[in-house]
Design a protein around this nucleic acid. Sequence first.
DNA 1: TCATAATCGAGACGGTACGTCCCGTCTTCCT
DNA 2: AGGAAGACGGGACGTACCGTCTCGATTATGA
Lengths: 190, 190, 190, 190
Amino acid sequence: MELLKVEEKSSRRQDEILQAVKQALTEGDYSQLTVEDIAARAGVGKSTIYRWWKHKSELVLDTFKQHTASVFELNAEESLRTNLIQQLSLLAQALNHPVGRALLVVIADHRELTSEFFQQYLLPRRQQTHELLQQAIQRGEIRADYPFDLMLDSLYGPIHYQIIFFNRLPDEVYIQKLVDLVLAPVLVSF
Amino acid sequence: MELLKVEEKSSRRQDEILQAVKQALTEGDYSQLTVEDIAARAGVGKSTIYRWWKHKSELVLDTFKQHTASVFELNAEESLRTNLIQQLSLLAQALNHPVGRALLVVIADHRELTSEFFQQYLLPRRQQTHELLQQAIQRGEIRADYPFDLMLDSLYGPIHYQIIFFNRLPDEVYIQKLVDLVLAPVLVSF
Amino acid sequence: MELLKVEEKSSRRQDEILQAVKQALTEGDYSQLTVEDIAARAGVGKSTIYRWWKHKSELVLDTFKQHTASVFELNAEESLRTNLIQQLSLLAQALNHPVGRALLVVIADHRELTSEFFQQYLLPRRQQTHELLQQAIQRGEIRADYPFDLMLDSLYGPIHYQIIFFNRLPDEVYIQKLVDLVLAPVLVSF
Amino acid sequence: MELLKVEEKSSRRQDEILQAVKQALTEGDYSQLTVEDIAARAGVGKSTIYRWWKHKSELVLDTFKQHTASVFELNAEESLRTNLIQQLSLLAQALNHPVGRALLVVIADHRELTSEFFQQYLLPRRQQTHELLQQAIQRGEIRADYPFDLMLDSLYGPIHYQIIFFNRLPDEVYIQKLVDLVLAPVLVSF
DNA sequence: TCATAATCGAGACGGTACGTCCCGTCTTCCT
DNA sequence: AGGAAGACGGGACGTACCGTCTCGATTATGA
């Protein structure tokens, strides 16, 4: 019981730390993020932070996970197109948020974290979308034979591309057009 | 002739410095890149580096430009598809090269450099590809009415996406499939 | 007791750093003194030094203070003459020591430190000597009416002068003669 | 003839450089003095400066010499006291001038220059004053048997002492009192 | 009168130390 | 006993100047 309490307590504290990271990133980008500042914001000693995270970069990763945790439920009742548009919009917003920006730096700078990020974040998301596609296939919305992996890259890729290299958050219109373009060849039409 | 000499920004010494950056990046990634190490490799004082580049990040940008300068000529005699495949392959290799990796970090970390990179590197490349498309249209290879910007993102985006988030250099097969997928709706067929 | 501990500004580590400064100055003069070298000698990071001292110059000042801390007690049982000779000899030695030499550079180079040095070092010393004079007056050794400030300058001045401009440590004989010369008009004789 | 002309010209240029040093020192102290700034003020290339002076410190020495060249003639018709007061006042002003301040730094910082300064500047001055004393002896103004070297130190020393350590230009009153104090035991009175 | 040489400004260069920043670890001292 | 506070070793940063060295433009000379 007491152990649980301790765990809970530290879990709450961890949340506070991640919140502090998010707040700090809202006020300045990754290069201005310092562990000391985070500690001060969270009312915590630096050692407490390093007890749970080996490096600053991991902190950012977890902050991003926490930040995007609630997002990304699928809506089984809507069409594939609607779901995709919603997914990509949320993704774009998440990536364009200061926390997402910081994540991009971390991913680029620490290649050893890429696989962790892939396993824990990207893969689940892709599988989710895969399910979406399966359902659409079963509903007869789209063709069953198609290079879906490539299709997903064609959806996700441009979003990241726009944010990273054009420094621009793709708007709803862009995303709709993108989805329509990519979806066109695969839709069952008659 | 003399005017040309004035115009070309890169003296021999600056070239040597960029070479030193490339070499250093080949031996370790961006986070291990040190201006002092670069200076030592180039047999140059630190001040010489800072005389020409304000920040380490700009050094990396110029190194990337130099590294990819010779690349990317179009081949007017080949088909659009062949040209695209070749372009994307070269791009993928450039980005996956240590220098490209470093560039990604810099772009992610210094958003103020994004527009410079866009202007000086991405935009010319896009215009080049646009010409390619124009030629293909005139040759009747592809349709004239199409959202080509979006199409370019669909080509470039996935390449970057694979490299950044999957930490993987897209192989020839991937690129061919990608090009075919994206090109399919726009090809004039009968 | 604990208050005392708090009050004493010099932790063990700070002492080690000052020792390292002294050692470094023994091996080379001020212009060769490097903070990095000091740090290395003290087995300390550069930041530790800059945490406690704003500038290299202040380090030297404190080193001089530490170096001359134990010195300069008066000997109430001896005659004024004996005390003065002893004081000036010690002063001369302190100034001629590498640490003293460095101090002279710092004082000359950083006029803003002069007043600090005056307050914390020269003034106490002068007051001490003033007491000495008061005692001598009360003992009837010397006259009570005399421009003692000027007298002190006539004692201290030549010592510094010899060291700075003649690059020469005044010997015992010089000091005795100086004291006798300056003291002559003020001694009570009959 | 032509050689002379060349020599003259360069001599004029050297003067301009020394003037530039003086001007620069008037606007900021020695630590802010840079050779590049001097060169710019003098409208001269850095190499021209280094052609005639090995180091920045020597430049300052020569500037001081030039600055005080015209000063310090003795006035044989006046009393010893008057002459001494005038001498010391001029000395004090010269030392307190930015150029003098810079000189003090250089002397303190480059002990190898001390002897040069001694030979070329201090010694002549002392000999001059010695003559003054000789004349006073012959006129019967002062006693013939006296430690004159020590006496000179008692005059020069306090002046330097006040300027260096009290950061204060001794005023006329101070100097008069000093001279009177030091002169008292040596004056022939009846 | 024009080519050739000497001079000198401008400033690039290798180098060195500075003082700052912040990492990730370790210590202290309070609660 | 645990944790906030923050000292610590370390190491890269970007800056400032030093004293040396190239490079052209500008004279000055001599054929």
